[in-house]
């Protein structure tokens, strides 16, 4: 959460584009990562992320400051746009066709060893096999490191449910990985 985020959001609501620019800088990578892991396609992830922030800017007056981070609202918009993306696309992405180079390009630190890269790619593909809800929770909790409270706000579910779903998602991911061996 940004320092004085509430004030920045108020300024953005009042039409201050530079204030919204600060919010963009803070949350853009996080939202992009979330979308990229869900669609597994760089250009599609870029398009959807752009649309998320454009929608947020156009509708920021609808955001109500309630002590929750601005990211929860952005995650809600992202989830809806990803669902719309799959609804309109109406074709399933072939897991094997996901280019490994897409990930490798974006992660220089993980290119150090081929072994690590290989494992990361397997896990990324396994995440893609989970259902949308479990994907959301795993990415939010372990990749973007959100708290259970932030995830519960973003998903509109109680914290206890989030914890149960998280446990189930990890279990399913392990099963998928063991099946792929």
């Amino acid at each position: 959460m940004l320092d004085g985020e509430d004030k920045i959001i108020k300024n953005a609501i009042d039409g201050d584009s530079s204030a919204f620019g600060l919010l963009y800088d803070k949350y853009h990578s996080q939202i992009y990562r979330f979308i990229y892991l869900k669609v597994s396609h760089r250009e599609e992830a870029e398009d959807i992320t752009h649309q998320v922030f454009l929608n947020a800017w156009k509708n920021i007056e609808k955001y109500q400051i309630q002590g929750y981070p601005f990211s929860s609202w952005l995650y809600q918009i992202s989830r809806n746009l990803v669902i719309d993306h799959y609804r309109t696309k109406k074709t399933t992405t072939d897991i094997e066709s996901i280019s490994e180079s897409e990930f490798a390009d974006s992660n220089d630190s993980l290119q150090k060893t081929i072994e690590v890269n290989f494992e990361v790619d397997i896990v990324r593909k396994a995440i893609f096999k989970l259902n949308q809800e479990q994907q959301d929770i795993l990415i939010m909790r372990f990749v973007d490191e959100l708290s259970s409270k932030e995830i519960s706000t973003a998903l509109g579910k109680p914290e206890s449910t989030v914890r149960v779903l998280q446990h189930r998602a990890i279990k399913n991911l392990k099963n998928i990985l063991s099946e792929n061996k």
Partner: peptide, 9 residues
């Protein structure tokens, strides 16, 4: 999973 945080646009 935490390593996936290195993904950047």
């Amino acid at each position: 999973l935490k390593g996936l945080k290195e993904i950047h646009p």
